[in-house]
Amino acid sequence: MVKKIPRTMRGALSEKLMDCLLETKEGSTVPASLAKTILYYWQRDRLDTQAGLTNLLHATVIADPEKAAKIMYDMGLEEISIALRQV
């Protein structure tokens, strides 16, 4: 799914997904191992890479699937947004 996201959008998208993860009331649903993987990429400033975004998106879908889909839609990634709503 992340492969379909244009590289130029990855930076802004990773910011929005991270904001969502930091603000959601369902943050505790993110598994510790996934949270640590995200920290690993954050430590290396690589959350906007394909691997970084894959983990961010995974965590956001777990914590707040509606918001994840909305973020994609708002960024013009409608196909991914629809796919996320079907997950």
Partner: peptide, 15 residues
Amino acid sequence: ELFWRTTYYTVQAER
């Protein structure tokens, strides 16, 4: 806060 949020903010602050 959840451990990973505090850690995230700290990495941000360090940077």
